[in-house]
Amino acid sequence: MMNLEQVKARFPEYARDIKLNLSTVLGGTGAPGLTEAQALGTALACAVAVRSNELAAVVEGIAGDKLDRARRDAARAAAAVMAMNNVYYRFTHFVGDAEYGKLPARLRMNVIGNPGIEKAEFELYSLAVSAINGCEFCIRAHEKVVREAGIGREGVQSAARIAAVITAAAGVLATVSDAEAAVAA
């Protein structure tokens, strides 16, 4: 398993800013308004959401015992359920017919009501994943719950920044991996 320094060493020069931002958001002070566990759980949910097993492993390595099994499971659950919900609710928003919003979703999403961790923290993970997936309806809903739970704008912004950096880093790593595979072939 690669650690953060090994992963960053794979970044080409054109992605220097992404590499620096990755160090910042995964560092102890890179997410103002969030606890270290909240920031790392958010980063894990984002890495899973962008399908980067490499970044997920790095985040879990950094987290060590700062993220217990319940938080790790909740981060993965947030990525999974938001993959479904963001598509569905983005559709109901984009279709432009309010009647769709009145129909029952008929989608199981029990984990949102019982995530195994504090609801606000799960909502924070869900907010970041919804930002990645571009679902305005879900972003607004999760941001409202997070703010009502006492996480300030700075914490919400940190979650969005983590989502942005993890997404960009995953894209760079995928491109580098594709190039490495092409050279090896």
Rank of each mutant, 00 (worst) to 15 (best):
M1F: 13
M1K: 12
M2K: 12
M2I: 03
E5I: 02
E5P: 00
E5L: 01
Q6W: 06
Q6I: 03
A9F: 02
R10P: 00
F11Q: 10
F11G: 11
F11S: 12
P12R: 08
E13F: 12
Y14K: 04
Y14F: 10
R16G: 05
K19Y: 00
K19V: 03
S23L: 04
T24V: 08
T24Q: 05
V25W: 01
L26N: 02
G27M: 04
T29Q: 09
T29K: 09
G30W: 03
P32C: 08
L34A: 09
L34H: 10
T35N: 08
T35G: 15
A39M: 03
L40A: 01
T42H: 06
T42N: 13
A43R: 03
V48L: 08
V50S: 10
R51T: 07
S52V: 10
S52Q: 12
E54Q: 13
A56Q: 12
A57K: 12
V58H: 01
V59Q: 09
E60W: 00
L67Y: 11
D68W: 06
D68E: 07
R69I: 06
R71H: 15
R72L: 07
A75Q: 07
R76Y: 06
A77Q: 05
A78M: 09
A78V: 01
A79P: 08
A79E: 01
V81N: 14
A83H: 10
A83V: 04
N85R: 14
N85C: 09
V87T: 09
Y88N: 15
Y89T: 04
R90Q: 13
R90P: 04
F91E: 09
T92D: 07
F94W: 10
V95P: 05
G96Q: 14
G101L: 09
K102E: 15
K102W: 00
L103D: 06
P104H: 05
A105C: 05
R108F: 05
N110E: 15
V111N: 06
I112R: 11
G113E: 11
G113N: 14
N114S: 15
G116L: 02
I117D: 06
K119I: 02
E121T: 13
F122M: 09
E123W: 02
L124I: 00
V129E: 11
S130V: 04
S130W: 10
S130E: 14
I132M: 12
G134V: 07
C135E: 14
C135Q: 13
C135H: 08
E136R: 13
E136N: 13
F137Q: 09
C138D: 13
R140Q: 12
R140I: 04
K144L: 12
K144F: 08
V145E: 13
V146E: 10
V146G: 07
R147Q: 12
E148P: 00
E148S: 11
G152H: 08
G152A: 14
E154A: 14
G155A: 12
G155P: 08
V156A: 14
Q157W: 03
S158T: 09
R161P: 01
I162V: 15
A163Y: 05
A163I: 01
A164M: 06
A164C: 02
A168Q: 04
A169W: 02
G171N: 12
L173G: 05
L173N: 10
A174S: 15
T175P: 01
T175Q: 15
V176F: 07
V176P: 00
D178W: 02
A179W: 06
A181I: 06
A181V: 04
A181N: 11
A182Y: 09
V183Q: 13
A184L: 14
A185R: 14
